[in-house]
Protein backbone atom coordinates (compact mmCIF):
# COMPACT_ATOMS: atom_id res chain seq x y z
CA UNK A 1 0.00 0.00 0.00
CA UNK A 2 2.72 2.43 1.08
CA UNK A 3 4.85 1.46 -1.91
CA UNK A 4 2.00 2.16 -4.29
CA UNK A 5 1.48 5.50 -2.64
CA UNK A 6 5.15 6.47 -2.89
CA UNK A 7 5.17 5.42 -6.52
CA UNK A 8 2.08 7.52 -7.19
CA UNK A 9 3.64 10.47 -5.36
CA UNK A 10 6.75 10.25 -7.54
CA UNK A 11 4.51 10.01 -10.60
CA UNK A 12 2.73 13.10 -9.34
CA UNK A 13 5.98 15.03 -9.18
CA UNK A 14 6.77 13.92 -12.72
CA UNK A 15 3.34 15.19 -13.75
CA UNK A 16 4.04 18.62 -12.29
CA UNK A 17 7.39 18.74 -14.08
CA UNK A 18 5.74 17.72 -17.33
CA UNK A 19 3.00 20.32 -16.99
CA UNK A 20 5.50 23.07 -16.27
CA UNK A 21 7.72 22.03 -19.19
CA UNK A 22 4.82 21.82 -21.63
CA UNK A 23 3.57 25.19 -20.47
CA UNK A 24 7.01 26.76 -20.82
CA UNK A 25 7.29 25.85 -24.48
CA UNK A 26 3.61 26.38 -25.25
CA UNK A 27 3.53 29.99 -24.11
CA UNK A 28 6.67 30.74 -26.09
CA UNK A 29 5.06 29.25 -29.19
CA UNK A 30 2.09 31.53 -28.79
CA UNK A 31 2.25 34.73 -30.81
CA UNK A 32 2.86 37.92 -28.88
CA UNK A 33 6.08 39.32 -27.50
CA UNK A 34 6.32 40.58 -23.91
CA UNK A 35 9.22 42.83 -24.89
CA UNK A 36 7.09 44.51 -27.55
CA UNK A 37 4.25 45.01 -25.07
CA UNK A 38 6.75 46.53 -22.64
CA UNK A 39 8.49 49.01 -24.95
CA UNK A 40 5.31 49.96 -26.76
CA UNK A 41 4.47 50.32 -30.45
CA UNK A 42 6.56 53.47 -30.97
CA UNK A 43 9.88 51.87 -29.97
CA UNK A 44 12.74 51.57 -32.46
CA UNK A 45 13.91 48.07 -33.49
CA UNK A 46 17.12 48.66 -31.50
CA UNK A 47 15.16 49.36 -28.34
CA UNK A 48 13.16 46.18 -28.89
CA UNK A 49 16.33 44.12 -29.35
CA UNK A 50 17.85 45.66 -26.23
CA UNK A 51 14.71 44.92 -24.23
CA UNK A 52 14.63 41.31 -25.45
CA UNK A 53 18.27 40.95 -24.49
CA UNK A 54 17.62 42.40 -21.05
CA UNK A 55 14.82 39.86 -20.50
CA UNK A 56 16.98 37.01 -21.81
CA UNK A 57 14.48 36.28 -24.57
CA UNK A 58 17.12 36.31 -27.32
CA UNK A 59 18.79 33.12 -26.11
CA UNK A 60 17.89 29.66 -27.45
CA UNK A 61 14.76 28.11 -25.88
CA UNK A 62 16.41 25.10 -24.15
CA UNK A 63 18.92 27.51 -22.64
CA UNK A 64 16.12 29.76 -21.35
CA UNK A 65 14.33 26.69 -20.00
CA UNK A 66 17.38 25.43 -18.08
CA UNK A 67 17.99 28.85 -16.54
CA UNK A 68 14.35 29.30 -15.59
CA UNK A 69 14.10 25.80 -14.07
CA UNK A 70 17.22 26.01 -11.92
CA UNK A 71 16.21 29.45 -10.62
CA UNK A 72 12.63 28.37 -10.02
CA UNK A 73 13.65 25.29 -8.05
CA UNK A 74 15.91 27.43 -5.88
CA UNK A 75 12.95 29.68 -5.09
CA UNK A 76 13.95 32.54 -7.38
CA UNK A 77 10.73 33.08 -9.31
CA UNK A 78 11.90 36.28 -11.00
CA UNK A 79 9.84 39.40 -11.35
CA UNK A 80 6.85 40.22 -13.49
CA UNK A 81 7.70 41.53 -16.96
CA UNK A 82 4.62 43.73 -17.02
CA UNK A 83 4.75 45.31 -13.55
CA UNK A 84 8.30 44.61 -12.35
CA UNK A 85 6.99 43.26 -9.04
CA UNK A 86 8.53 40.04 -7.66
CA UNK A 87 6.42 37.08 -8.76
CA UNK A 88 6.57 35.35 -5.40
CA UNK A 89 5.14 38.41 -3.71
CA UNK A 90 2.35 38.62 -6.32
CA UNK A 91 1.41 34.95 -6.01
CA UNK A 92 1.63 34.86 -2.24
CA UNK A 93 -0.50 38.01 -2.01
CA UNK A 94 -3.17 36.53 -4.30
CA UNK A 95 -3.10 32.93 -3.13
CA UNK A 96 -4.95 33.32 0.19
CA UNK A 97 -7.87 34.99 -1.57
CA UNK A 98 -8.32 32.08 -3.99
CA UNK A 99 -7.70 29.35 -1.42
CA UNK A 100 -10.13 30.83 1.09
CA UNK A 101 -12.81 31.19 -1.58
CA UNK A 102 -12.28 27.75 -3.15
CA UNK A 103 -11.63 25.97 0.16
CA UNK A 104 -14.68 27.39 1.92
CA UNK A 105 -16.96 26.66 -1.01
CA UNK A 106 -15.55 23.12 -1.31
CA UNK A 107 -16.25 22.38 2.35
CA UNK A 108 -19.70 23.98 2.27
CA UNK A 109 -20.81 22.36 -0.97
CA UNK A 110 -19.63 18.88 0.09
CA UNK A 111 -21.09 19.03 3.58
CA UNK A 112 -24.45 20.36 2.38
CA UNK A 113 -24.34 18.15 -0.73
CA UNK A 114 -23.73 14.93 1.23
CA UNK A 115 -26.50 15.76 3.69
CA UNK A 116 -29.01 16.63 0.95
CA UNK A 117 -28.06 13.56 -1.11
CA UNK A 118 -28.34 11.26 1.91
CA UNK A 119 -31.76 12.68 2.81
CA UNK A 120 -32.96 12.16 -0.76
CA UNK A 121 -31.71 8.58 -0.93
CA UNK A 122 -33.22 7.55 2.40
CA UNK A 123 -36.49 9.48 2.35
CA UNK A 124 -37.56 9.13 -1.27
CA UNK A 125 -41.05 10.22 -2.26
CA UNK A 126 -42.10 13.78 -2.90
CA UNK A 127 -39.25 15.34 -0.88
CA UNK A 128 -36.77 13.45 -3.07
CA UNK A 129 -38.49 14.68 -6.23
CA UNK A 130 -38.52 18.29 -5.08
CA UNK A 131 -34.89 18.23 -4.00
CA UNK A 132 -33.97 16.50 -7.27
CA UNK A 133 -35.47 19.35 -9.26
CA UNK A 134 -33.55 21.85 -7.11
CA UNK A 135 -30.20 20.06 -7.32
CA UNK A 136 -30.41 19.35 -11.04
CA UNK A 137 -31.16 23.01 -11.66
CA UNK A 138 -28.25 24.13 -9.49
CA UNK A 139 -26.05 21.64 -11.29
CA UNK A 140 -27.06 23.12 -14.63
CA UNK A 141 -26.55 26.78 -13.77
CA UNK A 142 -23.33 28.25 -15.17
CA UNK A 143 -21.36 29.97 -12.41
CA UNK A 144 -20.77 33.27 -14.15
CA UNK A 145 -24.45 33.57 -15.05
CA UNK A 146 -25.60 32.73 -11.52
CA UNK A 147 -23.08 35.29 -10.30
CA UNK A 148 -24.53 37.94 -12.62
CA UNK A 149 -28.07 37.15 -11.52
CA UNK A 150 -27.11 37.37 -7.84
CA UNK A 151 -25.38 40.70 -8.51
CA UNK A 152 -28.51 41.92 -10.29
CA UNK A 153 -30.76 41.00 -7.38
CA UNK A 154 -28.61 41.68 -4.33
CA UNK A 155 -26.49 44.58 -5.59
CA UNK A 156 -28.56 46.50 -8.13
CA UNK A 157 -32.10 45.85 -6.90
CA UNK A 158 -31.80 45.36 -3.16
CA UNK A 159 -28.52 47.28 -2.76
CA UNK A 160 -27.69 44.87 0.05
CA UNK A 161 -24.36 43.29 -0.84
CA UNK A 162 -21.21 44.51 -2.62
CA UNK A 163 -20.34 42.86 -5.92
CA UNK A 164 -16.71 43.83 -6.38
CA UNK A 165 -13.46 43.04 -4.62
CA UNK A 166 -12.61 41.34 -1.35
CA UNK A 167 -12.85 44.39 0.91
CA UNK A 168 -14.43 47.84 0.89
CA UNK A 169 -12.48 50.97 -0.06
CA UNK A 170 -12.54 52.03 3.56
CA UNK A 171 -11.44 48.61 4.86
CA UNK A 172 -8.15 49.95 6.23
CA UNK A 173 -10.01 52.35 8.51
CA UNK A 174 -12.33 49.73 9.94
CA UNK A 175 -11.52 47.94 13.15
CA UNK A 176 -12.61 44.77 14.90
CA UNK A 177 -16.03 43.46 14.01
CA UNK A 178 -16.69 46.09 11.36
CA UNK A 179 -13.70 44.84 9.45
CA UNK A 180 -14.81 41.21 9.74
CA UNK A 181 -18.32 42.15 8.68
CA UNK A 182 -16.97 44.04 5.67
CA UNK A 183 -14.95 40.97 4.65
CA UNK A 184 -17.94 38.68 5.07
CA UNK A 185 -20.19 40.97 3.07
CA UNK A 186 -17.71 40.94 0.20
CA UNK A 187 -17.29 37.19 0.47
CA UNK A 188 -21.04 36.51 0.48
CA UNK A 189 -21.88 36.68 -3.23
CA UNK A 190 -18.82 34.89 -4.71
CA UNK A 191 -18.94 32.21 -2.02
CA UNK A 192 -22.68 31.66 -2.45
CA UNK A 193 -22.23 31.36 -6.21
CA UNK A 194 -19.40 28.82 -6.01
CA UNK A 195 -21.09 26.81 -3.26
CA UNK A 196 -24.45 26.65 -5.01
CA UNK A 197 -23.01 25.43 -8.29
CA UNK A 198 -20.87 22.81 -6.50
CA UNK A 199 -23.65 21.61 -4.22
CA UNK A 200 -25.97 20.34 -6.96
CA UNK A 201 -23.40 17.97 -8.44
CA UNK A 202 -22.34 16.58 -5.07
CA UNK A 203 -25.88 15.95 -3.86
CA UNK A 204 -26.79 14.20 -7.10
CA UNK A 205 -23.68 12.05 -6.93
CA UNK A 206 -24.18 11.08 -3.29
CA UNK A 207 -27.82 10.22 -3.90
CA UNK A 208 -26.93 8.03 -6.89
CA UNK A 209 -24.07 6.30 -5.09
CA UNK A 210 -26.22 5.58 -2.02
CA UNK A 211 -29.01 4.13 -4.13
CA UNK A 212 -26.43 1.95 -5.90
CA UNK A 213 -25.29 0.53 -2.58
CA UNK A 214 -28.75 0.29 -1.03
CA UNK A 215 -29.59 -2.96 -2.79
CA UNK A 216 -26.26 -4.65 -2.11
CA UNK A 217 -26.38 -7.97 -0.22
CA UNK A 218 -24.34 -6.71 2.72
CA UNK A 219 -26.96 -4.02 3.38
CA UNK A 220 -29.71 -6.62 3.40
CA UNK A 221 -27.66 -8.61 5.90
CA UNK A 222 -27.11 -5.53 8.05
CA UNK A 223 -30.88 -4.95 8.06
CA UNK A 224 -31.56 -8.61 8.80
CA UNK A 225 -29.19 -8.43 11.77
CA UNK A 226 -31.61 -5.93 13.23
CA UNK A 227 -29.47 -2.80 13.02
CA UNK A 228 -31.38 0.44 13.31
CA UNK A 229 -32.14 2.17 9.99
CA UNK A 230 -29.78 5.01 10.90
CA UNK A 231 -26.93 2.58 11.59
CA UNK A 232 -27.57 0.82 8.31
CA UNK A 233 -27.55 4.11 6.41
CA UNK A 234 -24.47 5.61 8.06
CA UNK A 235 -22.27 2.57 8.54
CA UNK A 236 -23.19 0.39 5.59
CA UNK A 237 -24.72 2.54 2.87
CA UNK A 238 -23.09 5.96 3.24
CA UNK A 239 -19.59 4.62 3.89
CA UNK A 240 -19.65 2.51 0.73
CA UNK A 241 -21.32 5.28 -1.21
CA UNK A 242 -18.57 7.71 -0.26
CA UNK A 243 -15.95 5.83 -2.33
CA UNK A 244 -16.97 7.30 -5.70
CA UNK A 245 -17.69 10.61 -3.96
CA UNK A 246 -14.08 10.76 -2.76
CA UNK A 247 -12.86 10.12 -6.29
CA UNK A 248 -15.12 12.95 -7.39
CA UNK A 249 -13.60 15.21 -4.73
CA UNK A 250 -10.14 14.77 -6.22
CA UNK A 251 -11.50 15.29 -9.71
CA UNK A 252 -13.46 18.40 -8.82
CA UNK A 253 -10.46 20.37 -7.52
CA UNK A 254 -9.13 21.52 -10.90
CA UNK A 255 -12.68 22.24 -12.09
CA UNK A 256 -13.23 24.29 -8.98
CA UNK A 257 -10.09 26.33 -9.64
CA UNK A 258 -11.18 26.85 -13.24
CA UNK A 259 -14.62 27.85 -12.03
CA UNK A 260 -12.98 30.25 -9.61
CA UNK A 261 -11.31 31.98 -12.57
CA UNK A 262 -14.75 32.89 -13.94
CA UNK A 263 -16.06 33.88 -10.52
CA UNK A 264 -12.99 35.99 -9.84
CA UNK A 265 -13.52 37.71 -13.19
CA UNK A 266 -17.17 38.49 -12.34
CA UNK A 267 -16.61 39.67 -8.79
CA UNK A 268 -13.17 41.27 -9.30
CA UNK A 269 -11.88 38.94 -6.59
CA UNK A 270 -8.13 39.55 -6.12
CA UNK A 271 -7.06 35.92 -6.53
CA UNK A 272 -4.70 33.83 -8.61
CA UNK A 273 -7.24 33.35 -11.38
CA UNK A 274 -7.34 37.06 -12.08
CA UNK A 275 -3.54 37.29 -12.03
CA UNK A 276 -3.39 34.42 -14.50
CA UNK A 277 -5.88 35.96 -16.93
CA UNK A 278 -4.03 39.28 -16.81
CA UNK A 279 -0.64 37.58 -17.17
CA UNK A 280 -1.72 35.58 -20.23
CA UNK A 281 -2.99 38.76 -21.85
CA UNK A 282 0.33 40.54 -21.19
CA UNK A 283 2.47 37.47 -22.11
CA UNK A 284 3.98 37.85 -18.65
CA UNK A 285 6.02 34.62 -18.79
CA UNK A 286 7.37 34.47 -15.20
CA UNK A 287 3.92 35.05 -13.70
CA UNK A 288 2.19 32.48 -15.94
CA UNK A 289 4.85 29.89 -15.11
CA UNK A 290 4.63 30.45 -11.37
CA UNK A 291 0.84 30.33 -11.32
CA UNK A 292 0.88 27.19 -13.47
CA UNK A 293 3.41 25.40 -11.27
CA UNK A 294 1.53 26.20 -8.07
CA UNK A 295 -1.90 25.22 -9.36
CA UNK A 296 -0.56 22.01 -10.97
CA UNK A 297 1.05 21.04 -7.65
CA UNK A 298 -2.21 21.65 -5.81
CA UNK A 299 -4.19 19.57 -8.29
CA UNK A 300 -1.75 16.64 -8.05
CA UNK A 301 -1.81 16.84 -4.25
CA UNK A 302 -5.60 16.85 -4.30
CA UNK A 303 -5.69 13.72 -6.46
CA UNK A 304 -3.16 11.93 -4.24
CA UNK A 305 -5.23 12.78 -1.19
CA UNK A 306 -8.42 11.56 -2.83
CA UNK A 307 -6.68 8.32 -3.82
CA UNK A 308 -5.39 7.72 -0.30
CA UNK A 309 -8.87 8.40 1.10
CA UNK A 310 -10.43 6.05 -1.45
CA UNK A 311 -8.04 3.26 -0.47
CA UNK A 312 -8.85 3.89 3.18
CA UNK A 313 -12.58 3.72 2.54
CA UNK A 314 -12.51 0.69 0.22
CA UNK A 315 -10.35 -2.17 1.51
CA UNK A 316 -10.90 -4.04 -1.75
CA UNK A 317 -8.62 -1.58 -3.53
CA UNK A 318 -5.93 -2.18 -0.91
CA UNK A 319 -5.97 -5.98 -0.90
CA UNK A 320 -4.10 -7.94 -3.55
CA UNK A 321 -6.92 -10.47 -3.85
CA UNK A 322 -10.54 -9.43 -3.89
CA UNK A 323 -12.70 -10.26 -0.92
CA UNK A 324 -15.88 -12.06 -1.75
CA UNK A 325 -19.33 -11.02 -0.61
CA UNK A 326 -19.41 -7.23 -0.52
CA UNK A 327 -20.70 -5.91 -3.80
Amino acid sequence: MLRTFVRRALAGMAVVMGVVTLMFFLIRMAPGDPALLLVGPTATPEQLVAQREALGLDRPLPDQYATWLSRFLRGDWGSSIATGRPVRAMVSAAWPATVSLVGLSLVLSYVIGIIVGAIQATRGGRLDTTLSVVTVTLFAVPGYWLGLMLVMVFTYWMRALPAFGAAGLDADFLTGWDRVADRLRHLALPLTTLTLIGLGGTARYVRGAMLDVRNAPHVAIARAKGLSPLQVVVRHVLRNALVPVLTLLGLSLPALFSGAVFIEAIFAWPGVGRIMVEAVGARDYPVIMAATAVSATLVVLGNLMAEALTAWADPRLRAAEPSAGAA
Partner: peptide, 13 residues
Protein backbone atom coordinates in the same frame (compact mmCIF):
# COMPACT_ATOMS: atom_id res chain seq x y z
CA UNK B 1 -3.19 12.62 -14.35
CA UNK B 2 -0.95 14.71 -16.53
CA UNK B 3 -3.88 15.89 -18.61
CA UNK B 4 -5.93 16.49 -15.46
CA UNK B 5 -3.19 18.56 -13.89
CA UNK B 6 -3.00 20.91 -16.85
CA UNK B 7 -4.76 24.06 -15.78
CA UNK B 8 -7.63 23.92 -18.26
CA UNK B 9 -8.50 27.57 -18.26
CA UNK B 10 -4.90 28.69 -18.83
CA UNK B 11 -4.60 26.17 -21.62
CA UNK B 12 -7.80 27.50 -23.16
CA UNK B 13 -6.58 31.08 -22.83
Amino acid sequence: DFALALPRVVLLL
